[in-house]
Amino acid sequence: MSQPIVVAVNISEQKGTRKHPVEGPVTITVLGIQADAHAGDWHRQLSLLAQESIDKMQGHGLVLQPGDFAENITTQGLDLLTLPIGTHLQIGTVVTMEVTQIGKECHLGCEIRKLVGDCVMPREGIFARVITSGTIQVGDIITVINKGGTP
């Protein structure tokens, strides 16, 4: 099996909207992705969703793309739901993060829920806080450093 990778890095200027992919290296600070509405001093600085989860939602009359579920990082080849809170991930050679939340409550203003009638992010998305800042980009390898905080 191939290594897990970053499929897309996505941002939005406002909360509650789809995110759009950004090109090239993206700076991750200790507050999250620069220019993203969800960056800040809290436990959900970054959101991750698997491309496999997006693919399951296809066929509702829309062609869904990375960022449509408001995730910052679209992954491929990593079963995010097996990563307990406290898991440390590394993306590329520098950026590290800690999983802080699995899933979420879907807010009533969810743009995708309005269009499709369902949203996969509350069930299959995860959230993380940044430990080590740096840059990431499409194609970067994602490494599980430890699961649930155990080396």
Score class of each variant (00 low, 15 high):
Pro84Gln: 15
Gln45Pro: 01
Ala8Asp: 01
Ala39His: 10
Gln51Met: 14
Val7Phe: 04
Gly24Cys: 14
Leu81Pro: 02
Lys56Met: 12
Thr87His: 00
Ile28His: 00
Leu49Thr: 05
Thr27Met: 07
Gly59Asp: 11
Trp42Met: 10
Val30Glu: 15
Val95Phe: 05
Gly67Val: 02
Gly92Tyr: 00
Asp55His: 09
Lys15Met: 11
Asp79Ile: 06
Gln65Ser: 11
Pro21Gly: 08
Leu78Phe: 07
Ala70Arg: 01
Leu89Asp: 00
Phe69Met: 06
Ala70Thr: 04
Leu48Gln: 12
Ile85Met: 12
Pro21Ile: 09
His60Val: 08
Val63His: 11
Asp36Trp: 01
Val94Trp: 07
Leu48Met: 14
Val99Arg: 03
Leu81Glu: 15
Ile28Asp: 01
Leu62Ala: 04
Gln34Asn: 11
Leu62Ile: 07
Asn72Cys: 07
Ala70Val: 05
Ala37Gln: 05
Lys15Asn: 13
Leu64Gly: 06
Glu23Thr: 12
Leu49Gln: 05
Ile11Leu: 12
Thr29Met: 08
Ile73Leu: 07
Gly16Gln: 01
Leu78Trp: 02
Gly77Trp: 04
Ala35Ser: 12
Arg18Val: 14
Ala35Asn: 13
Ser47Leu: 02
Pro21Met: 09
Arg44Glu: 10
His38Lys: 09
Ala37Asn: 05
Ile73His: 01
Lys15Ser: 09
Ala70Gly: 03
Val99Pro: 00
Gln34Val: 15
Gln90His: 06
Val22Tyr: 03
Gly32Leu: 05
Val30Asp: 15
Pro84Gly: 12
Asp41Val: 13
Leu46Asp: 09
Val22Met: 04
Asp79Cys: 05
